[in-house]
Every structure is written in structure tokens, then in C-alpha cells.
Amino acid sequence: MERRTVEDVMTTEVVTVTEDTPFIEIVETLADHCIGAVPVLSGDGRVTGIVTEADLLHKQYKSDPPDTEPRLDRLRHRRARAKVHAKADAVDARGLMTSPAVTIAPRTPVAEAARLLVSRGFKRAPVVDDGGRLKGIVARRDLLSVFQRSDDAIRGEIIREVLVCRLWQDPSEIKVRVEEGVVHLHGKMELKSLIPVVVRMTAATEGVVDVVAELDYDHDDTHPTAYPRA
């Protein structure tokens, strides 16, 4: 089954800054390009960090500090507050950036990249080669592009790759209907144990939103058969 990777959906024309880029220039860069973050590159093109809008907002924290410091959990939050103050005092990308940046390899499957961004709470991540050099950037909206496949394309892949190539099922026995990414399976499988398998493989097909299975079977192979002794 074909699986799209990050390099299939990433943006290759990436706006970047260097470690010496001043604070104001970074702000203007984000505003001019309507983006929320920029990778920071070293002199040889390696990604050393990333500056986001959140990093820049720490400057506002410095200009409008809270009236009182929190009295609870001071020790636990001291390090976090020190980092905030350090970024509030920063004047260039070197001091503002989050480093090292969480990066993704170009050949990473789209589903794996989506799990990474969601688990880390990130909206985007730089894509780098084995040497750490920037190849592109991938955002959540890029990863959602897998759900823009047509229903006909999804149906064709399920019949061809799941039923015929992987499960050796007669496609005439299983009716596959796809409506807005939701796959409906109707028909009869030879073995009962194959029903959860075909559902799982169907759900793993790119672009599938959900699977509704109404499948019967010819033989129940989920219970051990008692054979007569010789």
C-alpha cells in the first residue's frame, strides 16, 4: 500500500533567519509572510533552532510584568521563569530560539509526523536531511492533505491493495462503498478471523475517516477445533 511521506506534502520554499537576526527583523519577517515561526540556520545551513510567535511574546512579558510573583511552587517554576526572562531579554534569534529544534526526516510517513506534532503540541516542524540541513517545513495543515483524496481513489486502493493483494479475497464477495472518506464494507469473508484484519487494513488506508463493516463469514476459525485422537 502506498504511503505518502513528509517530503510529499511539505513546503520547500521556507522563510528562515540566522542566529544573528535581530528581534524586530524577525517580527517583521513573520508579519510580511503571514507565518507563525521561522527556522534558525547556522552558517552552513543546519537547523539550530526555531523561533515562534510565542517566543517573541516573552518580550511583552518583560514590558508588562505581573504585580506579584506566585507564592506556590516557586522552586518548581523557577527554572521555567528564568527561561522566560532570558527570552524576554533576548535581542536576536540566538537568544529567542528554542534549541535544539524538533525536526522530521523527509521520508517520515505522514501519519507518524502527525503523531509527533500532536504529542508535542507543535503546529509545525522543520524537515532536515541526515546532515541536519533544511529541506522544508511541514505544518499540521500539510498533513491533513491526505484526507483530500477522492472517494474513488480510496475505494480503488482498498479493493486492489487490501482485498486482492494482501488478503486474496474475491472482490466480488465484498462490496466497498466510500462516502466522504467513510468506508462501508458489505459482504462475506471466508474466515471470521479475517474480519478485524480487513477492517484494520481499511482504516489504515490514507484518506479513510472511518470504517463501517457489515461483514458475515463462512467459517468460524476463532475457536479451537477438537480433533479425535489417533
Rank of each mutant, 00 (worst) to 15 (best):
L41Y: 08
L41E: 12
S42D: 10
S42L: 10
S42N: 13
G43M: 05
G43I: 00
D44P: 03
D44F: 07
D44H: 06
D44V: 11
G45A: 11
G45S: 07
G45F: 05
R46T: 08
R46D: 03
R46P: 00
R46C: 11
R46Q: 11
V47H: 02
V47F: 02
V47G: 05
V47Q: 00
V47P: 01
V47S: 06
V47C: 01
T48V: 13
T48W: 02
G49T: 00
G49R: 00
I50G: 09
I50S: 02
I50K: 09
I50L: 14
V51F: 05
T52V: 12
E53A: 04
E53L: 02
D55H: 11
D55C: 00
D55T: 05
D55I: 01
D55K: 04
L57A: 06
L57K: 08
L57N: 09
H58A: 09
H58R: 08
H58P: 00
K59E: 07
K59A: 14
Q60H: 08
Y61C: 14
Y61G: 11
Y61E: 13
Y61T: 09
Y61Q: 15
Y61R: 14
K62T: 01
K62W: 02
K62D: 01
K62G: 03
K62M: 05
K62V: 04
K62Y: 02
K62L: 08
S63L: 09
D64A: 12
D64K: 09
D64L: 03
P65V: 00
P65T: 04
P66C: 14
P66A: 14
P66N: 10
D67W: 07
T68G: 01
T68Q: 07
E69K: 13
E69A: 15
E69G: 03
E69T: 13
P70E: 08
P70S: 07
P70Y: 02
R71G: 01
R71S: 10
R71H: 07
L72D: 06
L72C: 05
L72F: 09
D73W: 09
D73Q: 06
D73H: 06
R74I: 07
R74K: 15
R74S: 14
R74W: 05
R74T: 11
L75Y: 12
L75G: 09
L75H: 06
R76A: 15
R76H: 15
H77D: 03
H77Y: 11
R78T: 00
R78Q: 10
R79T: 06
R79P: 06
R79G: 13
R79A: 14
R79K: 14
R79W: 10
A80C: 12
A80V: 13
A80G: 15
R81Q: 07
R81I: 04
A82G: 10
A82I: 10
A82S: 13
K83D: 05
K83S: 08
V84L: 12
V84N: 10
